[in-house]
Nucleic acid binder design. Structure first.
Length: 569
RNA sequence: CGGGACGUGGCGCAGUUUGGUAGCGCGCAGCGUUCGGGACGCUGAGGUCGCGGGUUCAAAUCCCGCCGUCCCGACCA
């Protein structure tokens, strides 16, 4: 490819709309251009990089027994209504109406397409398992698209769906995909972690997220300093304290705390640390009141609470609901709560006695509150939000919270789609059963952004070979010198014949512009052919990843470039 | 959706407070000089100042409405 021909309008200055590195550099290096919020055109360089990611994903899927198909983007509403996701997705779903007034949508993922497909095609257990995948654009009308390719409303995803006759089969298929994913992210050269995660809107049970470490990541994960525990922050369980001694418990006493409605205010007023307070949070679970108890210095992780009450939806009390349901906001305590309230406590509540908590009347709190003497607990559930410095549940060491970009998410779905869609096969015993399904996503376009977040510097992109759009650039440093141009063309031709993905910068630009662009786009290897070198019989080489420069004989420039490329990450 | 900021040639910005002939840098075109880290000179093209309405002798500037984009919060690959 000749840069004089390539549509690659690089930008000298940072675009005003881009803040983070991947967004900024993908725009500047002419990989993408914005069309609307969260919607981008992919330019030749960007498309080549994305194809590189696709290729790795495709290869690993294929060797894992997955078969590539292609499903439509414009979809009928009916299956989505059957699974409940027509409503569940809400405004996140792009909806449209066809000329006949039929409701349709742009696919945000395709369980509702793949499941009927297999149902109609594979009636017997003898045909299972089956694993189908596609690489196709997905549409989600995000509340707030941002960060360029990291959260677009249109994004390229590899999605796979497995169908098994039983749970063991599902787990086997899942494991095969899990290992394929590890190989994919290894080959991409990403610094990533695999964590157990919350299932989110897809639903289901066992699931893992693949997270690329990045400071700009919107997701957080927890890892033990000793490396023996990893989890999504929303799913992570901190180590638990020993149960508190039940000897010498204090008496329950009511104290005046005028105007002190928050943990902080009460703590200050009474001179007691916030961890001695028992925080009582009120929620509505399908009409029933749920009181959630956590130590005063902890926050409730509502994702955990939702999981504990799934499929009932959980909602925090609105201000007006306290009074109408007989509670005093700011002074709620679990003492004397009736059977109409479900009292859930985090296990950490076991670790302490003599709590300070609300007295259920305005401007008063109680001290010395203990269970079961003064209040009951109906259920213990892990509901606290994990935070930096918590104890590891495995070895008690310190946990750290890291930020990351979710680039892959896999789920064991069971029958949560096959049942409502009534997708069945005939099992060995002649009975019809619902498929045990799995679903497996990888954000292809997001991977490109995540890779840029991990591989860039002040000068531009520094993608590894696995994802760089080309391997080598041959820079013609003196454009008006015929010998230089001829030698550069020769080297360019030789590299091409060696199967190297090579570009020649034959543009009518000064050397400085070409060097800057070469660094910006981030070709792993730069070969610079200039007048001085041609006269002395040498070329200059630069390894983009390290910045290391070297020289090689002019006659063997191509071979030297190949050798250098082999050392490139 | 709530909170904040912005919208002026292709890109980055000034001008708006205090209304009065639309400017700078980069890029682009032509000519010349340059030619290994974003060259220089001369000449030139290019703008309904986001859109609509209003106030005014006069609006990029003041007022109202709308649209778009970005940043901070609840969802996800």
């Amino acid at each position: 490819m000749r840069l004089s021909q390539l549509f690659a309008p690089t930008l000298r200055e940072d675009p005003a709309e881009a803040e983070i590195a991947s967004h900024r550099l993908l725009l500047r290096a002419a990989f993408i251009r914005q069309v609307a919020a969260g919607v981008y055109t992919t330019l030749p360089l960007g498309l080549r990089a994305m194809r590189k990611v696709e290729r790795i994903v495709r290869e690993e899927m294929d060797v894992s027994g997955a078969q590539e198909i292609r499903m439509p983007i414009v979809l009928p509403a009916e299956p989505w209504k059957a699974t409940g996701r027509w409503d569940l997705y809400g405004e996140l779903m792009f909806r449209l109406t066809d000329r006949h007034g039929r409701e349709m949508l742009l696919g945000p993922t395709q369980e509702e397409v793949a499941t009927p497909l297999v149902d109609a095609g594979l009636p017997s257990y003898r045909d299972l398992p089956v694993n189908l995948y596609q690489i196709e654009w997905k549409y989600r009308d995000e509340f707030r698209p941002r960060f360029g390719l990291l959260r677009g409303r249109e994004f390229l995803m590899k999605d796979a769906y497995t169908f098994d006759r039983d749970e063991q089969g599902m787990a086997r298929s899942y494991d095969i995909m899990l290992r394929a994913y590890r190989r994919i992210f290894d080959r991409l050269g990403l610094d990533y972690v695999v964590v157990e995660a919350e299932p989110g809107q897809i639903g289901g049970g066992v699931n893992h997220e693949f997270m690329a470490r990045a400071d700009v990541g919107e997701d957080r994960f927890v890892e033990c300093e000793n490396g023996d525990y990893l989890a999504d922050q929303k799913a992570a369980t901190p180590g638990r304290p020993e149960p508190a001694s039940q000897d010498g418990l204090a008496e329950l006493e009511t104290v005046d705390t005028p105007g002190a409605a928050t943990i902080e205010e009460v703590s200050g007023f009474l001179g007691r640390p916030s961890e001695q307070m028992l925080k009582t949070m009120l929620y509505d679970a399908g009409g029933r009141t749920v009181a959630v108890l956590v130590p005063g210095d902890r926050e409730v992780e509502e994702a955990k609470l939702e999981r504990a009450f799934f499929p009932t939806t959980i909602r925090r009390f609105e201000d007006g609901e306290f009074a109408s349901r007989g509670f005093v906001k700011g002074f709620v305590g679990p003492q004397g709560m009736g059977e109409d309230v479900t009292i859930v406590a985090d296990p950490s509540v076991r670790g302490r006695a003599d709590w300070v908590t609300g007295a259920n009347e305005s401007d008063r709190h109680v001290t010395g509150a203990n269970t079961p003497r003064d209040f009951r607990i109906d259920r213990f559930e892990d509901v606290v939000a994990l935070r930096e410095g918590d104890r590891c549940p495995v070895d008690g060491a310190t946990l750290h919270v890291g930020r990351a970009i979710v680039v892959g998410h896999i789920y064991q779905l069971g029958t949560i789609y096959s049942a409502p869609l009534d997708a069945r096969f005939v099992d060995e015993d002649g009975e019809e059963r619902h498929y045990q399904m799995g679903s497996y996503g990888i954000g292809i376009s997001r991977i490109l952004a995540a890779a840029v977040e991990q591989f860039h510097d002040d000068a531009g992109l520094r993608l590894p070979r696995a994802t760089a759009p080309f391997d080598v650039v041959v820079v013609v440093a003196n454009r008006d010198d015929e010998r230089v141009a001829a030698e550069a063309e020769r080297i360019y031709g030789e590299l091409g014949e060696l199967g190297i993905e090579v570009v020649i910068d034959d543009r009518e630009q000064t050397a400085g512009v070409k060097f800057a662009d070469a660094d910006l786009v981030g070709y792993p290897v730069q070969v610079v052919v200039g007048r001085r070198g041609v006269e002395t019989g040498s070329v200059d080489l630069k390894l983009r990843a390290s910045g290391d420069r070297s020289t090689a004989p002019l006659a063997d420039a191509a071979g030297a470039a190949v050798d250098l490329l082999a050392s490139a990450p």
